[in-house]
Write a protein that binds this DNA or RNA. Structure first.
Length: 494
RNA sequence: GCCCUCAUCGUCUAGGGGCCUAGGACAUCGGCCUUUCAAGCCGAAAACAGGGAUUCGAAUUCCCUUGAGGGCACCA
């Protein structure tokens, strides 16, 4: 069996911050490369000067690094086929454009943007199917050419699409796809600013970088016949294509800024784990079987195959991502979890709380919140009462539990305060026996005692288990908070 | 408008002629557990777009319709 060398690339353009749609493409390429012991190349397609965004490159590299999608060739890494920025390969594209010109596969076009626009409006007005270009310059006479040249117009170079016949290419996911050449337009290869278009640069680079498989988003499908024709004009063997199903917004259209398409790094900021993102994105358009949901990166690499990529677009389901992160978070050791939430606490807790936050104190809290948060960032809001001073703010009515009223609640609080004062040192078992017997003595159900104490100590009705929470807070603070609760209740009951 | 692609629960999907009275996951609802909230466990509801054809038999093959998406830039 001939072992083909697998070389794939992720080729983003630095025109914005990559979102899940973009990065999912990177992930599939990476998985395919790693599964096949191949090479994963990162190439920056910075050929559009006008849309260039300054820190987009950092965001691209940052996203990939965060997710551990390491590249074998590319920026910061180098490689035999560099440079890996298209803006540094302009000479190459020029020479190939010239080559096509010489071979009669391309021509110079002097049409102004205004003329092009007019042409398209006219077509639309005549209810013709709108073409991108009417081939006006395809057969210019020498006289016309020198006339344009003398006007100082810088032409673009267009590719000559064959006027008849069909172009068929094979897609690894969709099978054979055929286009009538008459449906294809003479696309621009080299822009008047001297930069190549995607089409030219992409083909030249994929060839020179010996790319074996092109795994790219579905939106490129209709460009592929043009690319096929370009490979043919150059006399190059095209790579194998696999057009990935797209990731969609809630309205089922292509995920974009319109949907508030979240930059991948934002998930990092929100307290998601990279492994969650990898796992989740892998399942957007790929699956192993009818049951497995949670995959380690290694399992993903082991099982990934193009055959199991689906054809249909996938709506990005934030809810499931959230659940999945919770699943991963719960698997973390207490120590790992603490490491993740320390910075969150430092940053997210109200500023008046003294810094640095105590490691030792947080260590006690971590086990109490692990199964109650789904993202790291939630720690700061969920567990803030552990850190706030004892003058908690909350609606005193919360103190009154079901089937309780103000006087009975007051009775509980006062009795609890009294009884707890006699407890030497708070710990779970001691608190439990003490408070349960107190409830008995008072003739209340356990919950009728626990509930007001919970609110008193935390200001909330939903908290980690009461005794553990009180133990972490400690006797002094709990008693102070219970006294405060008593006072609050007395005030509203007059 | 033209071209291309796609079509299973609300969402992500399994399914490649009989194993499907269509399986799993998220979300939803109910129950158990329980000091609250979670987590966990158990259960429920929820889909083969429509119509033809092929076949003993179709979610699975073919055709048409419909719907959806993508593309039609000197953007990628």
């Amino acid at each position: 069996m001939s072992q083909q060398t697998i070389r794939v690339r992720f080729a983003p353009s630095p025109t914005g911050y990559p979102h899940v749609g973009n990065i999912r493409t990177a992930l599939f390429n990476w998985l395919f490369a790693r599964h096949n012991n191949g090479t994963f190349i990162l190439r920056i397609e910075d050929t559009d000067q006008s849309r260039k965004v300054d820190d987009a490159l950092d965001s691209i590299l940052g996203s990939l690094k965060w997710l551990g999608l390491d590249w074998d060739e590319g920026p910061e890494k180098g490689g035999e086929c560099g440079p890996y920025f298209q803006s540094e390969r302009l000479d190459l594209y020029h020479s190939y454009a010239q080559h096509l010109l010489d071979k009669g596969h391309a021509y110079k076009c002097y049409c102004s943007p205004e003329r092009l626009e007019q042409m398209r409006t006219d077509m639309a007005a005549r209810k013709e199917s709108v073409r991108s270009y009417d081939r006006y310059c395809r057969n210019l006479t020498n006289k016309q050419i020198s006339e344009y040249e003398s006007q100082g117009i810088t032409p673009v170079i267009r590719f000559k699409i064959p006027l008849e016949g069909q172009t068929t290419f094979h897609d690894l996911i969709r099978g054979d796809i055929t286009f009538e050449n008459t449906e294809l337009d003479d696309l621009v290869l080299l822009k008047s600013d001297g930069y190549p278009t995607y089409h030219l640069a992409n083909i030249v680079d994929d060839h020179h970088m010996k790319i074996s498989h092109v795994l790219r988003a579905d939106e490129w499908l209709s460009s592929t016949p043009r690319h096929t024709l370009l490979y043919k004009a150059f006399g190059w063997k095209p790579p194998l294509f696999a057009h990935l199903p797209m990731i969609l917004g809630p309205d089922k259209s292509k995920l974009s800024k319109r949907h508030g398409a979240t930059a991948v790094t934002e998930f990092q900021d929100q307290g998601y784990l990279p492994q969650t993102m990898i796992n989740f994105m892998a399942l957007l358009g790929w699956s192993l079987d009818d049951k497995t949901e949670i995959f380690s990166k290694e399992e993903l690499i082991r099982h990934f195959s193009i055959e199991r990529i689906s054809k249909t677009g996938a709506v990005f389901n934030h809810e499931k991502l959230y659940w999945m992160n919770g699943a991963y978070l719960r698997e973390l050791s207490h120590q790992d979890l603490q490491q993740h939430i320390m910075p969150v606490l430092e940053k997210g807790l109200p500023p008046h709380i003294a810094r640095p936050i105590s490691d030792e104190y947080v260590r006690k809290i971590v086990p109490l919140i692990q199964e109650r948060i789904n993202t790291f960032n939630e720690a700061a809001t969920y567990a803030d009462f552990f850190f706030l001073d004892d003058n908690l703010e909350y609606d005193p009515m919360l103190l009154i539990a079901k089937k309780m009223d103000s006087p009975s609640t007051l009775k509980v609080l006062i009795a609890a305060n009294e009884r707890l004062s006699t407890v030497e040192c708070f710990d779970h078992d001691l608190l439990e026996t003490t408070l349960r017997s107190l409830a008995d003595e008072l003739g209340f159900k356990a919950g009728q005692v626990f509930s007001p104490l919970r609110v008193a100590c935390t200001g909330r009705t939903a908290t980690p288990p009461l005794f553990e929470t009180m133990t972490v807070l400690g006797k002094e603070r709990c008693l102070a908070r219970i006294k405060l609760a008593t006072k609050k209740l007395q005030q509203i009951s007059g």
